[in-house]
Amino acid sequence: MTEALTEPQTGPQAEPLLRVENLRKYYPFTRGIVFVTKVGDVKAVDDVSFTIAAGETLGLVGESGCGKTTTSKLVLNLEQPTGGRVLLQGKPIHGLKGEARREYRALVQAVFQDPWASLNPRMRVGKIIAEALVVTKWGSRSEIDHRVVELLVQVGLRPEHALQYPHEFSGGQRQRIALASALASKPKLIVLDEPVSALDVSIRAQMMNLLKDIQESENVAYLLVAHDLATVRHMTHQVAVMYMGQIVETAPTEKLFEEVRHPYTKALLSAVLPDHPDHRGEEIVLSGEVPSPMDMPPGCRFHTRCPFALPECVTHEPALREITPSHQVACHLYSDP
């Protein structure tokens, strides 16, 4: 199975499971109370493109406000894009109606960060898991009940848990319930928005192992939104690092961590806390904070914090370009091949 993941079964020309093309999401911001005028746009997601192959995991990494969660909401069709397209199996997902929309909903599911907010406290666990099946009229009642039991067992819970309410479970168990409900309709893609960061350390490992096992058995692709590089390294096949609405570096996971190029990725990497007191790598401490998205710096958006900024970084925005095969970086430091 692992070989199958590194070597796509279909040819390189084949359409990937998910293709995101030049995706943009701008939120207008206004001034005034009586006379409201639009002052500009907050570019939450600004020209983002990536693909996810079937059965693979893409990690979307960045700090809060970098646009990774907005991107995931666009992929989930919970937000309408300002520009660009999201294609699932070659078909655009926004503006779908009727049967096509139902089909898309069955194929793309999600697990969110906070297991205390993502389960309806007034619904029994069985009903929560069955919801996607009930609304898509997946089968008869007994077939659905059967599937719920199957899912509970698959995520490591017991069939009788179906009759209980969410408050009777711990955080880790709730996240398993959330995963079971995401798996119900046999999706091809699950958006995982910080799926383990709200869990206790000893529970995180269980959840990560479970996610990997399920990927192997169901051949489901993940879009993993995360801020912790160690988790990302452990979980993903491909990584895209985002800063202020844009992808600044993307590469296959092993490749990226072998030779990190973009100064921001380097800073993120050195901010990962050591797993032993003697492990201290190169330390890049960024000065200052992420600028306000209402006041986007000109040129490279990272130049205000970058320790290696060049004169052209202030004036010209670097494009995302391939510097070695399949490794793309948006940085002037690598503009000369």
Partner: peptide
């Protein structure tokens, strides 16, 4: 604003539901 409402949409629930 709670996540379970967003997830209900992801599951394909109608607004009325």
């Amino acid at each position: 604003q709670r996540d379970f409402v967003a997830l209900a949409k992801v599951h394909g629930c109608s607004e009325l539901r």
